[in-house]
Write a protein that binds this DNA or RNA. Structure first.
Lengths: 328, 328
DNA sequence: CACGTTCATGGAAACGATTCCATCATGATT
DNA sequence: AATCATGATGGAATCGTTTCCATGAACGTG
């Protein structure tokens, strides 16, 4: 029933060579043409596949790449993960996935597990701050941040969407429609966006219109409903993610705010259902999959050299959730 | 910069005992109380964490669990993966994720990689058929199928939603509304559902109204649009997944079919946006996360014993996408 | 012809854990 | 008092690979 896999020793014996030679042939070292051919033939016959276990132990690292995202249920992270998987697959590397729930403690726990596994390359959407990442980074793990930077760690490469430009575009679009009271409905780790929001609004800024939810759907809904009830004078909302956007639509509907007549809505992240929504949602599209792919690329190609980060463009896609300010 | 982690040998020396004792203490073997305490103290001081690399090699297996899904971008699989991760986390096991794109060849490739990694436990949403899984299963890998069974492999436990009941409920609901020409818009690997669909419809069955798409969005849209154009006489559709449902809504909209006036729509899988859609979609909810969690549980608790599969209930959630048959 | 260089090759030592087995002390039983 | 069972303990083997190093052959050059 349980057949033992062939080991390098089996191949060596069958080919009449030493194990060292087999290893060299298989990893592209020098060997005479005839030896090489014989080894390859035998290896194919025995259906030999080198065990990652032995290799990993010897080189004290597991080839795989670790991937940490807040919530795999969120479509954005789903696409990001997909990008990482695509790149890893083309490199033949396994991916170990963990979720952090945007919780620093849980993140640390996951990192601990990855370390235990000997994972030396990590792509992460960071939840914790610079101090929390400090020990990880100095433990020799090659890290690339995706989607968010970690404050104060400019030495770690990050693959980001151009949030600043995205926010500015959205805000300009809304102000262009005549809106003056514009709210930002944010999630965890969106410091960049909030800053950009403040700058873009300039004199129109109203700190009370900047609210922040935790990662969950419930929290997002509570934040949106609270905002709308507390400040019925606002006429436009920028939702910082598809969960927040979903919550905004739901809360608006619940409070009988019609979109876009009573409330204009722009959502960060283009998701398939944005088009199905009534009305279809105007969004700032982010290349989630690319972010993942590029991050994986960076973490794999990092040959000692410290690569610079990457900034990917966003795009405002106008659909039907924004209208001119109601002048009633 | 790059600090070497403490090994079991370091702990042994620092505690003045042999490595065997350290290993025993840490894995719950017998040891005298004072020795135990000393070892634990020293281990804590050195921040020792056993390397999974060494352990894996010794026991010729990597503890982790392999997870194979068709498409991590699909919300259903996202939730399923989340369930597996939740269970794995509580067991302290890492999860290696791979996507198959519902392609048997790619699935085989991924399995090969898992095998190479020494993964001995796999949760999979299978793409290939019984023959393809044959070598994997006999190679000693503990496998649990999720979401779909593999035809002819009743010996492998599977965690499934009760598709049969779900289909029957939906069909009964639609026929109860007066519909007679009901189509099934299916995806890959939905043999069970199609069979149930045929049985539930009985005399109303029209084979031409059963169409099948491949996994992609494009393919789903093409199938839906083709179906609606080819058979304008149909009055209701059962979409076998959220991608298919999305495609059906889009295609209906494109062809100016109003839901539910011209076309009633029931979708498999309850997704957050089903409520946001216009009209809100009537769905058959599946416990995606539970499926993942239970599957992971089975694959972890499988102590030689071959556990039976699990069938989880579905639920028809009536929203606004179904109406009485138009009698114009 | 002697010598040095280059190359293919195999033996053996890691890597870090688990686990078999032998050893030794202790206490109980005859 | 002699023997035996029990339990704690450490040495050493083992897992499968990579890689260092020594060996020996082949070859070109002085």
């Amino acid at each position: 029933m349980n057949v033992r896999r062939a080991t390098i020793k089996d191949v060596a014996e069958a080919a009449g060579v030493g194990v060292a030679t087999v290893s060299r042939v298989l990893s592209g070292g020098s060997a005479s043409p005839e030896t090489r051919e014989r080894v390859l033939t035998v290896a194919a016959q025995l259906d030999y596949r080198p065990s990652a276990l032995g290799r990993n132990l010897r080189q004290r690292r597991s080839g795989g790449i670790g991937l940490l995202v807040p919530d795999i249920t969120d479509s954005f992270y789903g696409r990001l993960v997909d990008g990482v998987l695509a790149c890893a697959r083309s490199a033949g590397e396994p991916v170990v996935l963990g979720t952090t729930g945007d919780d620093a403690e849980r993140e640390a726990e996951q990192i601990g597990m990855l370390l235990e596994q000997g994972v030396e390359r990590v792509v992460a959407v960071p939840a914790g701050n610079g101090e929390i990442w400090e020990p990880t980074l100095r433990s020799g793990i090659t890290t690339v941040f995706a989607h968010r930077p970690v404050g104060g760690r400019d030495d770690v490469p990050a693959v980001l969407a151009d949030d600043r430009a995205g926010v500015r575009t959205a805000v300009d679009y809304l102000t262009g429609l005549g809106h003056r009271r514009i709210a930002y409905l944010g999630g965890p780790g969106q410091g960049q966006r909030v800053t950009a929001f403040r700058q873009s609004l300039g004199a129109l800024l109203d700190e009370e219109l900047i609210v922040s939810a935790r990662g969950s759907r419930d929290s997002a809904y509570a934040a949106a409903a609270g905002l709308f009830q507390h400040r019925p004078d606002l006429t436009a909302v920028l939702a910082g993610g598809n969960l927040l956007g979903e919550a905004a639509v739901l809360a608006a509907r619940e409070l009988d705010l019609r979109v876009p007549r009573d409330l204009s809505l722009v959502m960060f992240d283009d998701v398939p259902w944005a088009e199905l929504c009534a009305p279809p949602l105007t969004v700032i599209a982010q290349p989630a999959q690319d972010i993942g792919y590029r991050a994986a690329e960076l973490v794999l190609r990092a040959g000692g050299r410290r690569p610079r980060g990457v900034l990917l463009p966003t795009e405002l896609i106008v659909r039907g959730s924004c209208g001119p300010r109601r002048t009633s």
